[in-house]
Design a protein around this nucleic acid. Structure first.
Lengths: 204, 204
DNA sequence: CGCACGGTTGAAGCGGCTCAATCTGGGTGG
DNA sequence: CCACCCAGATTGAGCCGCTTCAACCGTGCG
């Protein structure tokens, strides 16, 4: 298994793909603490790209070290395994959002997901989740036009759920955002509950 | 790790989620040979459902047996690992499709993916891939209305890429479909190349 | 100062949705 | 064997959400 594993320590990163026409689709967000196993590099060619949003510090862990670690501490192997399962859950949730939610719900849902994840790692509170990216990035993530995202963002702001400055979005009321999105943190709770439980060695 | 692993032997299945409003989004298709590890059941509650399309035969492998297998034959563990990576790649491709492709491309792209996967397991050829599901199912998979999917299907048929009968769709010309979809089988080739290579024990 | 980029807003066009009707083949009860 | 029924396919008409095009503004920066 060639290729190292990456971990985001500070700053944000995204997985994305540029289509022949030039448009970009952001597939997922990586925030501090997230593993960015370049799975894909393990296979053949990469089918998508990874980039950082503004400055970020990324740690590299050589693959052999990784394997040594998981061999010594099986609990780690399980933790990694779970991490991947959760990531898959997030991807599935994204598909559901893109397929069957209105633009308002879709934007709100994404902001909720990111807010919850930020809260979980302690870089946000219920009334202040600061997302360090532009509305353009948001647009490429939810599959809409920057122009239309801007209008949606306006609605969220007028609803008192969001605040906006150039280059960053701030979720000012998670509860309101959750309500608008019809957000069910089930699939993320899992991330918490199990990874937390697992780290104490209760399972298997 | 509770919960058995499932393998589809015959027939098709889908992962899907029903939203509060009653609409359904199909997340992925499972065809013969596909593992349907109920990952999620391993975690807490399921965040989506699985169902078969028409009759199907599913094999159940108890978890402990699975673990015994992978212990005896590490190559199997790697194969499962890869399978999961590939599945993730498919999910990512789906997200890209839903976000940035037109309805025509989107439908064609899905049909291409399924056709290639069917060809890979030997249940279809370049000019005859028979999909055992209705346009309604297709609609729920690509995030469109049955009515509109029907119009798109009409266009594909008039382009000579597709044939339609009640309850089944037949890709009559993969090459034409690929052209319409702008399909790049890269992310699936991987499935072939690597899993094939892996089974010979070349890696790691 | 001027430029570039992100945000904001308006107007017009189009793609996909909704509503609704018709058609078809297959399955059912009589 | 026939009348009936139903799900899926098909087609038309009108509506609405999102895109496109096109301004204009504010701000950070070379």
């Amino acid at each position: 298994m060639p290729g190292p594993v990456f971990v985001v320590l500070d700053g944000w990163a995204i997985r994305y793909k540029i289509l022949p026409g030039g448009s970009r689709q952001i597939i997922s967000f990586l925030m501090p603490g997230d593993f960015c196993d370049m799975h894909v590099a393990v296979l053949t060619e990469m089918d998508h790209s990874i980039a950082t949003l503004s400055d970020a510090t990324i740690v590299t862990i050589p693959r052999h070290q990784m394997e040594a670690l998981t061999e010594i501490r099986p609990a780690l192997a399980r933790a990694f395994w779970w991490t991947q399962l959760v990531d898959e859950g997030v991807l599935r949730a994204t598909i559901v959002s893109m397929g069957r939610r209105t633009s308002l719900e879709r934007v709100a849902h994404l902001l909720c997901e990111l807010s919850f994840r930020m809260r979980n790692i302690g870089i946000a509170t219920d009334d202040h989740c600061e997302m360090p990216f532009s509305q353009i990035v948001l647009a490429d993530a939810v599959g809409l036009t920057p122009v239309h995202v801007n209008r949606v963002v306006g609605r969220l702001r007028r609803a008192g759920a969001l605040e906006v400055t150039a280059g960053t979005l701030i979720v000012a009321s998670l509860s309101r955002m959750v309500e608008i999105a019809g957000f069910d943190d089930n699939y993320l709770h899992r991330r918490l509950k199990r990874i937390g439980a697992n780290s104490t060695g209760q399972h298997m």
